[in-house]
């Protein structure tokens, strides 16, 4: 079963539209959702949680249509962290525990306070006095403390220092050790996603350019530095994107369609993303 299934989902606003997005996150996997600012990542997450109504298409979350009347029950199994924590400023961690205890059926106080201690958060400090990093840690602790099966994280690690980010990435990784646990994580920090994702979905200007297994992407694409005079020897269909210089060009190419005579450098996710974005403009 897929934890998330989007089929031909579209949503149009006045100045932006998300067009015909189809993606599947298999249960037990981590999917990284990448894209530039305004590409549609947060809209996609809002559509998944049905806080924004889609114009067309179908969305199944943990096997349930997200527009069904009892979808709020499915939300019991979803841990969510948005780009900000959005708790009222007067609350502190103990208040959050009391509120969430009465919100989620499976709320586990001991797990919540373990995270609070692990993240070195004060239990009594008002939310407004937290730094951005502390706020996000509180949101992450909340999302992880009600036995969710699916974690949806929208820029959850932004604003955190590299050490705690690494620690949190490890927590997300641990989370998927249970075979029915899945994670969808959108982030600008592609190095984090590269570390943990099984799948990468790339949104660009409201279109899904690819949704592939990360390892396949890394195997399939390579970077080729070639002089402008030799560029004609490269089959056009092999070129995914290019950056032209005065005397030479950088090409992102499909390895399978390129002669082995060429010396290809490995392509990282960020490079593939940049090449594709350039090509699409």
């Amino acid at each position: 079963m897929n934890a998330i299934e989007m089929k031909h989902v579209s949503k149009a606003y006045r100045s932006f539209s998300l067009n015909d997005v189809s993606l599947s996150l298999p249960t037990g996997c981590i999917m990284g959702l990448i894209g530039e600012n305004g590409a549609g990542k947060s809209t996609t997450i809002s559509l998944l949680m049905n806080t924004v109504k889609r114009d067309s298409g179908e969305i199944l979350i943990l096997g349930k249509d997200n527009q069904s009347a009892d979808f709020h029950q499915v939300k019991e199994d979803i841990g969510i962290v948005l780009d900000e924590a959005y708790f009222p400023e007067v609350l502190h961690a103990k208040n959050v525990n009391q509120i969430m205890k009465r919100t989620y059926r499976n709320w586990q106080e001991d797990i919540f306070f373990n995270y609070i201690r692990q993240f070195q958060l004060s239990e009594r400090k008002p939310f407004k006095e937290y730094s951005r990093g502390m706020k996000m840690k509180l949101a992450i602790a909340t999302a992880l403390s009600h036995q969710p099966k699916l974690l949806i994280l929208d820029e959850a690690t932004s604003g955190l220092d590299p050490i705690i980010r690494d620690e949190i990435i490890e927590i997300f990784n641990d989370f998927t050790r249970e075979e029915d646990h899945s994670v969808l994580i959108s982030s600008h920090i592609i190095s984090d996603l590269e570390k943990i994702s099984d799948y990468i979905a790339y949104l660009h200007q409201g279109k899904l350019l690819f949704c592939e297994e990360k390892d396949r992407l890394l195997e399939e694409y390579g970077i080729l530095q070639v002089s402008n005079t030799d560029i004609s020897a490269i089959p056009q269909e092999a070129i995914l994107g290019r950056k032209d210089g005065k005397y030479s060009s950088s090409l992102c190419v499909r390895r399978s369609q390129i002669s082995q005579a060429f010396d290809l450098e490995p392509a990282g996710i960020e490079e593939i993303m940049l090449f594709l974005a350039k090509q699409e403009v």
Partner: peptide, 18 residues
């Protein structure tokens, strides 16, 4: 008013509430 300032509804809409 407090909810609005904290944008609480963005989070509340994601919680298991109708």
């Amino acid at each position: 008013g407090y909810d609005e300032r904290a944008k609480w509804n963005k989070l509340a809409d994601m919680l298991p509430y109708t």
